[in-house]
Simulated scan of single mutants.
Amino acid sequence: MNLLDLKRKAIELRKDFVTMIYEAGAGHVGSDLSCTDILVSLYYHQLHVDPNNPEDPERDRYIQSKGHAVEILWAILADKGFIEKEELKTFSQFDSRLLGHPNNLVDGIEMNTGSLGHGLSVSVGSALAAKLDGANYQTYTLMGDGELAEGSVWEAAMAATQYKLDNLTAIIDRNGLQITGSTEDVMGLKDLHGKWEAFGWHVVDVKDGNDIEQLLAAYKDKVEGKPTVIIANTLKGKGVSAAEGVASWHHHALNSEEYEAAIADLDRALEELVNGK
């Protein structure tokens, strides 16, 4: 996909999962909106995965440690052909495979996530296994910034440096908000770049983490012998005006008026993109 196609796909997928959340009456819409561009740039440009061979031992591994933002992931897996699009209608319903967090009953999901702070540790294990096996696959994980208050994240960060896991890329969705408010008020992260650098990681700052072009450049920025962390400065609720920068939309079920306004915002963005505005 070219850059225009990727931007269009991000808007279309936002419409898909906003509709999923509205129809289910549950979901983490603000969190999904902030990381949509990260996942689109990964799944449609960076990751080597095949829906026709989801267990390919040479596939890249993606672990969504930020498991509560699963709706965008379900929408992508359906769009890529890992699951049927009709199954999206079952999201968060009784006996559905599509739960409110990733689960590995679904092709394309490496592990169950949702208990924050575990994804990086498992990703370290995945990357280390590739080194030991002489395999070429890459491992990627997405973390929320609020998740970085978990001590297990920093234990994993030390291990990744110890084993020189340059086949590991961690991405931080740095939207500055979590369910109880500002990350800096709840558990301040302060100099996040300096923290990761002190732990021995190659740190890539993305000024606008909702800019797909900047994200694509960040994935290419690697250093031999060091794991990479991308700090993507995103906007919570990106693309839906009522949700942008609003902590209460972290976990929010849209009413009919909010849903119609959200779709109108996204339709307008799509029209502007197509018309080159």
Rank of each mutant, 00 (worst) to 15 (best):
L3H: 06
R14K: 15
D16K: 15
V18L: 06
T19Y: 02
A24S: 11
S31K: 03
C35S: 15
L42A: 12
Y44P: 11
V49H: 03
R61A: 11
H68M: 03
A78N: 11
F91D: 03
D95C: 10
H101T: 12
N103L: 02
N104V: 02
D107Q: 04
S115H: 06
G119L: 09
V124I: 04
A127F: 02
Y137L: 10
Y137Q: 08
Q138E: 14
E147C: 08
A156R: 14
A159Y: 11
A160E: 02
T161L: 01
Q162N: 13
N167K: 05
L168N: 06
R174M: 07
G188I: 08
L189S: 06
K190G: 00
H193T: 15
G194V: 03
E197L: 12
H202R: 05
D208A: 07
N210A: 01
I212S: 01
E213T: 03
D221Q: 11
V223G: 04
G225Q: 04
T228W: 07
N233H: 15
T234P: 00
L235M: 15
A242C: 05
E244M: 12
V246F: 02
A247C: 03
A253P: 05
E257L: 09
Y259I: 04
Y259R: 07
E260K: 14
A261S: 14
I263C: 06
D267F: 10
